[in-house]
Amino acid sequence: MTVHTGQRNALRRFTTPIAVVLVLGAVFAWVGTLDLDSIESRTLNAEHLLDRTREHLVLTVVSSALVAVLAIPTAVLAHRVRSRIVKAVVIGLGNIGQATPAVGVVILLAIVWRTGFTTALVSLVAYCFLPVLRNTLTGLEQVDAATREAARGMGMTPNQVLWRIELPLASPVILAGLRTALVFSVGVATIATFINAGGLGDMIVNGLKLQRFSVLLVGAVLVAAIAVLIDWAAGLVEDRVRPRGL
């Protein structure tokens, strides 16, 4: 019985990467059958693909890490203040960040500031701030009042209550927010190409502009594959990190 459950879990766990590998394999096999012209062969080679993918991943991972470092402490502070007004303002700011179209933020920032990686990073952070902030705040708020009172009643300091009780209990919701932010940023990072910040958006836009369907397709498939794989990996981490007993 347990063996079967274990096998089924392993199967489910590996379905996603196997599917991704199959799709990528099929796409590259198809590309291999094509006669590439000079434009296509400049893009569809291992070096170019790896460079764009690396740029894309760096943008995604660095922006998500920054979001985690900025949004989680902000949420903890807002939670600590216990003022509805502060919470409303913080959530409102996060809402504005997310409601603004990502393309708009990227282009505007590029106009008023400069083009390049840093600008792309800043707009990604602004865009992904909200889900992490809101989830962290929600996670902390939904910790049972009785649990918190018991902790305080036993003589835990407010910091001990935060680190030993509130954050562990909120961690599944916080992690879910981070996972959302990661997947968001994979998609939004394609826009970085418009301000010369690289990434797989280059291939999609070039493929469209130059009417090279194979370039467009490979770029789009790679973005999708990264998003799916990152979501999958984040799911594994969530399962591993989630406190037992919940």
Partner: peptide
């Protein structure tokens, strides 16, 4: 107050066990 509470046993109706701890 924190030091004080460590020397007073406290039981509440909702019990308030920490669900993530054994």
């Amino acid at each position: 107050p924190n030091e004080l509470r460590r020397h007073i046993g406290y039981v509440i109706q909702q019990i308030g066990l920490f669900p993530h701890m054994t």
